[in-house]
Structure formats: C-alpha cells, structure tokens
C-alpha cells in the first residue's frame, strides 16, 4: 500500500467528519433548511408513493446488513478466526460490500436531507457519521493492503492488517449502536 493512498484516505476521513460537524453549527442553519427544501429532501420526507421514506429506511437496513455483516467476517478471518478459509478469494466480496455501501450512502443522504435540521444538529447523528467514516476508511485500507497487490496469491497477514480489522469491527458496533440511538436522542441528550 502506498503512503499516498493512506494520506488521501486519512485526509478525506478527517474532512468528511469535520464537514458533518460544521454543518451542525448555527451558522449553517440556512443550508440545513435548504437541504430539507430540495427536491430530494422533500421527496423522501413527504412522498406517499412506494419509494418514499419507508423504502429509504428499508434500503438503509439492507445495506447495513450487507456491509457490516460481510466485512466483519473478512475482519474476523484476518484476526485469525476460521483460519481454514483462504483469504485471497474473500477479496472478491468487496464489490458486493462497496455496492452495499453505495446503497447506504444514497439512502442515508436521503434520510439525512429529509430532516436535515434535526439530524445534523443531533450529536448522536454526528457521532454515528464519524464512526462510519473511520470504519469505512479502515475497511478501504484493509482491502487495499490485503488484496490489491497480488489478487490471486494468499496474502500474508501483518500486524497492521489485524489492527485495521479489529478497529473496523469495533467501529461498526459503535456506529450501529449510535445509528439506532439517533431516534432516541431525546432520551439520551435531552433533545
């Protein structure tokens, strides 16, 4: 894995996290309300068609199951669990995982835009996004370092791989807990 890849990934992760936090400040209330008023935001919030809010929620759940369920198994294998499974073919799971992530990026954007002012000012939401961003970065770096150099050969697992895999699983758990708790922020942080 090239140093440049790590640097770009790290920079992007920091940038997106900071952006989500900044968008929640008072200065950007106008932008948040504009997001709610966009066609996308209004559609997700108000459409009574078969593609409205419930569908976005369902898509988000399916994407979660695909991304977290599958990538966690890859991480467990990297950590030494089920060591009879060859690692090399697991690289072929990543198109599926990134497909699931694309579904969640799309459905998540829709859900966030629909109630942008409430979501972006919710600290539980901000925390969830930060957890997801770091988890996805760890997943991307794990994929790049394990599979891309020589796709057919069985890769050697190093300490770095195990650290990436372990932090990814932990962050997925945090992201899932925070994600579910967004709806209960009123009870938790008095909102």
């Amino acid at each position: 894995m090239q140093n440049r890849t790590v640097m770009i990934a790290g920079f992007l992760a920091g940038f997106v996290s900071a952006l989500v936090w900044v968008l929640g400040t008072d200065v950007f209330q106008g932008l948040r309300l504009w997001l709610e008023a966009t066609f996308f935001g209004t559609f997700v919030r108000e459409s009574t068609s078969a593609f409205g809010y419930p569908t976005f929620i369902v898509l988000h759940t399916v994407g979660l199951a695909v991304v977290v369920g599958t990538s966690t198994l890859v991480a467990l294998r990297v950590l030494g669990f089920a060591s009879t499974i060859p690692i090399a073919p697991l690289g072929r799971l990543f198109p599926l995982i990134w497909g699931g992530f694309a579904i969640n990026l799309f459905s998540g954007s829709g859900l966030a835009a629909a109630t942008a002012d409430g979501q972006l000012t919710n600290p539980v939401f901000t925390a969830k996004i930060v957890f997801v961003v770091i988890a996805v970065t760890a997943m991307f770096l794990l994929q790049k370092s394990l599979f891309v150099d020589a796709p057919e050969r069985e890769p050697t697992v190093t300490r770095l791989h195990r650290q990436l895999a372990g932090s990814m699983v932990g962050l997925w758990l945090l992201a899932m807990v925070a994600g579910r708790l967004i709806a209960y922020a009123g009870v938790i942080v008095g909102r």
């Binding site: 199951a65 977290v68 369920g69 599958t70 966690t72 799971l93 758990l173 899932m176």
Partner: peptide
C-alpha cells in the same frame, strides 16, 4: 435485534 440480524445475514451471504 439489528446486531444479531447482521451476524446472521453476513454468514448467510457468504
């Protein structure tokens, strides 16, 4: 409930 579902679904996918 979500965490359990994800564990089950991931293995089912593989």
């Amino acid at each position: 409930h979500f965490t359990g579902m994800t564990m089950l679904f991931g293995v089912a996918v593989l």
